[in-house]
Design a binder for these strands. Structure first.
Lengths: 346, 346
DNA sequence: TTGTACGCGTTATCAT
DNA sequence: ATGATAACGCGTACAA
């Protein structure tokens, strides 16, 4: 076996600096830097020599030094609400994938649905000199967000907002909710309960609107008693159904404003001996990973967290690149599974 | 309203440097640095002057420059397998919480259960000059891990391993599985199927051992036909049960090596018209967030991901501090819910 | 106790 | 096209 001259010192380039590469290849550090960044044109000979030196020495550029010198850290801040959220988690995955492919590293921090915490997150990220910011929904005011965007390219999801250096990616909650309700209506349901998300959340309002719009389009009267408060978590869906049943109000179907509440609702029904879908039809919203394996598999509105993450990341990269992002989230789609069934209209 | 003299220029300290603080307070940059890091003793007057200057200027130290100069970045690499994993996601939350409180920021990267990818993650993190590393289980070989630990304080979960600069946090899979099986046995079940995790995963073997040990302790013969292969995801649990049923083998209970497979198993049973727990008892492993709201609520082995994350982070902080961590994961516990019931021993 | 001066590894600005 | 040289913001010997 032939030994290549000057093999790299293992996969880990201990402390090989750009300057060493420069010396090793007989050029100046500046030239090496240029080659690395494609900043300028260099002669092919030098380029080759440098490339070889890089390979032989196992040189890895130091992002820290880069950040100090160039002002860019090749890192992006991502504010999510809880790192273990079933919905946003998938979005993080999409962000990670796209950013990583572009040489960026995401810095994930959690705001816990709290504007103050989100502000703190931004300080932390800014201190870390991230090149850009992705905010997954959250509670931060539009004004604050715009101010942040003034000095930090920002992508925000879950709201409509136009500002320089800022791009908003909004999912069509209204249409999603309309679709879900429409499906139930088509199956002959007339008494459709709606478990809403908490009012402070921007998505909640639109989903309620979609529900009402579908009802109206079918000439079904809206009943306030069929709208139950929820907070986007399982337990709130469960409580809502318990209250609904206790209220004595008639219903043959439930539309929950997200899957987690739908799961809770399903449990409450189960606990009362009501079967889904034989006794009650159920539709969720989000299409979480668990929806396909719940019992019964949940019919729901697909809102691709993965795609959302990917597009958010691509938008940020565009912003960072001085371009104007033009991405749009895919339209909501009904995913038909086994939690609804047709009934004779009452 | 009284204006405080020289109010900070907004919450965002635009570009205030340590040197500016030094000038503003009439001391040298070195002194400011010392105060910031508690590196040396300083006279109270100077300290006060500096503190005030920091406040007035709204100075925020630049971690990037710090990293370059001091070699510490106050950041820790965390290799998880999938950023959206329901089990490890909770662990990330614990890590984030503890690290954040200590002024560290976690850099989350995903290895996707692939040793090569994990290696790449390590390169990336090393390039980012993280101060330490937490590896959540994963497939990396022990030897590789020890090598990494030579130059980077490391905490690893999911395996036993002793090495300098390395701390391993291992959950008692054997005992957990034994507990689960024992519970079923106590309820009178004798034909207990076991859906195992995939063989490449370190946890799988121990859980199988625990299952067998419990069987043996009760004088119940081990039947290979009751052991189904799985891969720790829902669909594999579903397939396993389908095969089990097709095989004609008798069984009254199922123990799945994790909750996700238990969910899949429950679905397969549901699809065949078998009720849990009336016809078949079911036990999972992990106690995922969803287990409490599955139908029926799943009896399972609690393995606190949150605690695991917290302890991993604390261990790393100890390592970083030159101390020897002495943390141990809490013992596994059976969480009794509604997916099992007693039967007359056959 | 405090200040001076240098270095960390890279990019950017000048020259050439 | 390429090479010096000066930042970038901070930590830390070393000196005082």
């Amino acid at each position: 076996m032939r030994k290549t001259s000057a093999a790299p010192s293992g996969p880990v380039g201990g402390k090989v600096t750009l300057e060493m590469v420069a010396r090793h290849s007989g050029v100046s550090p500046a030239t090496v830097s240029r080659i690395l960044n494609g900043t300028a044109v260099v002669s092919d000979e030098k380029r080759e020599a440098v490339d070889r030196a890089i390979a032989e020495l196992g040189f890895v550029p130091n992002p820290i030094a880069r950040g100090l010198a160039g002002g860019r850290t090749l890192s992006a801040g991502v504010i999510t609400q809880a790192i273990d959220s079933p919905f946003y988690g998938v979005a993080l995955r999409g962000i990670e994938e796209v950013l990583d492919a572009a040489g960026y590293i995401p810095l994930f921090v959690s705001g816990h649905w709290n504007a103050d915490e989100e502000q703190r997150c931004i300080e932390v990220l800014r201190a870390r000199r991230v090149d850009g910011l992705i905010v997954l929904t959250g509670r931060l005011g539009d004004a604050d967000l715009c101010k942040v965007a003034k000095t930090l390219p920002t992508v925000i999801t879950g709201r409509e907002l136009k500002a320089p250096n800022l791009y908003a990616l909004q999912f069509d909650d209204f249409e999603g909710a309309r679709l879900a309700t429409e499906h139930l209506l088509q199956q002959g349901h007339r008494r459709i309960a709606f478990i809403s998300g908490d009012p402070g959340h921007p998505d909640s309002h639109e989903r309620l609107r979609g529900y009402r719009a579908a009802l109206q389009a079918h000439g079904v009267r809206f009943r306030q008693a069929l709208v139950l408060p929820g907070s986007f978590i399982e337990e709130s869906g469960r409580t809502a159904v318990q209250q609904l049943i206790a209220s004595g109000e008639q219903f043959s179907a439930i539309f929950a404003a997200n899957d987690q509440m739908a799961f809770g609702a399903a449990l409450a029904l189960y606990e009362r001996g009501l079967r889904v879908p034989q006794d009650v039809s159920l539709v969720g919203f989000d299409d979480l990973a668990g929806a396909a394996h719940s019992i019964p598999p949940l019919t729901t509105i697909q809102q691709s967290g993965l795609e959302m993450g990917k597009l958010a990341a691509r938008s940020l990269l565009a912003l960072l690149n001085g371009e104007a992002p033009r991405f749009t989230l895919p339209a909501p789609q009904l995913v038909l599974r086994a939690s609804t069934r047709a009934v004779d209209a009452d």
